[in-house]
């Protein structure tokens, strides 16, 4: 597919053209970098171009307190939500692959999560090539694929933009700030430095280590704060709660929120029985879901190697290191 070019000085024009029809979400520097909606030109100066944002784009697809349906006594009615068209800008390859994995998990031949599907259909994924990994990430080990609508590669004065999908191409054609170019994306452009650290052989044999006591080294440090789950771009487990109205108690909404497998309540059933009582079991469950269980079902690891679960852990529990030492 054809490539496009965006001059850096044109970026503001690009933004204003996009924001005519789309919400524009980009990694914004603040006390902590996270993906936020850009509402004015000034915010463009706060876009994080270099480092991986600590907070992933997850909240866009899986928002806090998301209404699932409305109920009234004994009837249930769909909520009327129409997601706005959105451009998700500045996603790194790890974030993009996490979305790809989420597609596999939440849209399969039997069932489709309707809310996720709608948001996905109404969003355009614009990647930003990540030139240098940090001390915790290991995306180079994780067989990530080119999964995006558009991808930006930074050059001195401009960005060369690769299009991957028809959706991306159609979008690029409409934005006049983007010009067609014959320039190709070179192999050099695609390189990300310092992004390998996991022992791939060990990772592929992880099933053999399930009973290993070495996992205790990590789990005994765990504070059960759930940061690893909350910062993981691909973790997708959720739970429902009913929120009745105060005056008309028989009316209300069923809400959805993100769950955390690192807590006892995750597997608690009626009668207060907990299936994964031990912290070590819960610690292992997250890692094994990421590296083994998801792969058994979908052929790829759920983990995309962004290292956020280690970078965001208060104790910096480095499970990659523990695995490498197996």
């Amino acid at each position: 597919m054809s490539n496009y070019v965006l001059q850096k000085e044109e970026f503001s024009a690009f933004f204003s053209q996009v924001s005519e029809n789309y919400d524009f979400i980009a990694p914004i520097k603040g006390k902590e970098t996270s993906f936020e909606k850009v509402t004015n030109d000034d915010m463009l100066n706060l876009i994080e171009w270099d480092e991986l944002p600590l907070f992933p784009i997850k909240h866009f697809f899986q928002p806090k307190d998301e209404p699932i349906f409305k109920y009234d006594k004994t009837t249930a009615k769909d909520v009327n939500s129409k997601p706005r068209k959105t451009v998700l800008f500045g996603l790194r390859l790890c974030d993009l692959n996490a979305i790809h994995h989420r597609d596999m998990a939440l849209m399969n031949e039997d069932f489709t999560d309707p809310f996720y599907k709608e948001r996905r259909e109404n969003s355009i994924l614009i990647g930003l090539h990540c030139k240098k990994g940090d001390e915790y990430c290991f995306c180079g080990d994780m067989d990530l694929h080119d999964f995006f609508d558009l991808m930006l590669y930074e050059h001195d004065e401009c960005f060369i933009i690769e299009t991957k999908t028809d959706k991306g191409l159609k979008f690029a054609k409409k934005i006049t700030a983007l010009d067609r170019t014959d320039k190709a994306i070179h192999a050099n452009d695609r390189i990300t430095e310092n992004n390998t650290r996991i022992d791939k052989e060990k990772m592929n044999k992880i099933a053999d280590f399930f009973t290993s006591e070495k996992w205790e080294e990590g789990s005994k440090l765990c504070l059960s704060c759930t940061a690893c789950n909350m910062l993981c771009p691909s973790c997708y487990c959720f739970e429902f709660t009913d929120e009745p109205e105060l005056v008309l108690l028989h009316k209300g909404q069923r809400m959805r929120n993100i769950s955390s497998c690192q807590l006892k309540c995750f597997t608690r059933v009626a009668g207060d029985f907990v299936f994964r009582k031990e912290k070590n079991d819960r610690f292992k469950h997250r890692i094994y879901h990421q590296l083994q269980y998801f792969k058994e079902k979908h052929g790829v690891t759920l983990c995309v190697g962004c290292g956020r679960c280690i970078r965001g852990c208060p104790k910096r529990i480095d499970w990659v290191d523990i695995l490498n030492k197996m």
Binding site: S34, F55, M230, N257, S260, R268, G312
Partner: peptide, 18 residues
């Protein structure tokens, strides 16, 4: 509520004070 304060703090995308 069966989750720690960090859970909601992360949902709110706050910088970790630690």
């Amino acid at each position: 509520f069966d989750k720690p304060v960090c859970y909601e703090c992360k949902l709110n995308r706050n910088r970790c004070l630690l």
